[in-house]
Computed example of a mutant assay.
Amino acid sequence: MNFVDDYTVLDLEMTGLAVKKDKIIEVGAIKVRNNQIVDTFKSFVNPHMKLSDKIINLTGIEDGMLVDAPEEDEVMYKLIEFIGDDCLVGQNLIFDYSFIKQWAVNKNLKLDLYYCDTLKIARTILPKDEKKDLENLCKFFDIKRENAHRALDDSIETMQIYEKMKEIAKRNDLEKLCFLPRKFNVKLKKQLKATNKQKEQLTRYLANKNVKYEINWETLTRNEASRIMDRLYVKYGR
């Protein structure tokens, strides 16, 4: 079997785990040709929301670093262009890809990409008692872990893990089907933009309560508007 030697590695950092409500805050990708890095892409993304202490502590990314960052649309269009028709490689990639897919669905853009997941490959060819998260895979392969949970650094480390697992498979004639690229099968519904009534309600409430709350009105969805309103009610009353 032929392994994928030309591909793009992808990693994202987000405000949380929920595709429907959380936002991308950093994108990192590397383009690999014949097993060598030939290009990189990285960018912060302005999420228009405050980061939780958990995310700040995990990533080292702070609110001030994102204030002047590009908007999601700008970064996503550039990322899609960077990826092109490449097979994507990543650690637990379905999770990261879901955020890109949700954006694409919202924009009525069709994504038809293939991927190889280093987590699934590791579960197939490495000892069962070895932990398979990125941190422990780096330890297993003696890969220096720098700037953990920063998108570009994680992408570079994932690429090294992927190449080392290919070497193991070739050397030991292990089951190689896990290296076959698979087509993404992520189904998400389009998030509808907030109605004028919702925007008016939010604007009126914030003015009446004299509350400052950062909202990206251009990208605000109906679900987001409802969640924001619920949070405001809990904190400030009706």
Rank of each mutant, 00 (worst) to 15 (best):
N2W: 02
N2C: 01
D5C: 01
L10W: 06
L12H: 12
M14W: 14
T15N: 08
L17N: 07
V19L: 03
V19W: 01
K20F: 03
K21W: 00
I24A: 07
E26A: 12
G28K: 08
I30M: 02
I30P: 02
V32E: 00
N34T: 00
N34L: 00
V38E: 05
T40C: 00
T40K: 09
F41H: 02
K42F: 12
S43A: 14
H48T: 10
M49G: 01
N57G: 01
L58D: 03
G60R: 07
I61V: 08
E62A: 09
D63H: 14
M65K: 08
L66G: 05
V67F: 13
P70G: 11
P70V: 13
P70F: 12
D73L: 12
Y77G: 00
Y77E: 15
I80Y: 09
F82H: 01
F82G: 01
I83D: 05
D85H: 15
L88G: 03
I94R: 10
F95H: 12
Y97F: 13
F99Q: 03
K101D: 02
K101S: 08
W103E: 02
A104D: 04
A104F: 00
A104W: 00
K107Q: 14
N108I: 02
L111G: 07
L111A: 08
D112A: 15
L113E: 14
Y114K: 13
C116S: 04
D117L: 00
T118F: 04
K120N: 07
I121L: 07
A122T: 04
R123L: 11
T124P: 03
T124K: 15
T124D: 10
I125L: 03
L126N: 06
P127L: 07
P127F: 07
K128Q: 08
K128M: 14
D129R: 11
D129L: 07
K131C: 10
D133A: 13
L134Q: 14
L137Y: 09
F141C: 08
D142H: 13
K144F: 04
N147Y: 14
R150Y: 11
A151E: 10
L152N: 09
S155A: 15
S155Q: 12
Q160L: 15
Y162K: 14
Y162P: 05
Y162F: 15
E163P: 04
M165E: 05
M165C: 04
I168Q: 08
A169S: 11
R171A: 10
D173C: 07
D173L: 13
L174H: 06
P181Y: 02
F184H: 03
N185C: 13
K189R: 10
L192T: 13
K193H: 12
R204V: 00
R204Q: 10
R204M: 01
Y205N: 11
Y205E: 09
A207G: 00
A207S: 01
N210S: 12
N210P: 02
E214Y: 01
W217A: 10
W217P: 03
E218D: 11
T219Q: 09
T221I: 10
E224L: 01
A225G: 04
S226T: 12
R227H: 05
I228Q: 06
R231P: 05
Y233W: 15
V234H: 14
K235A: 06
Y236K: 05
G237F: 12
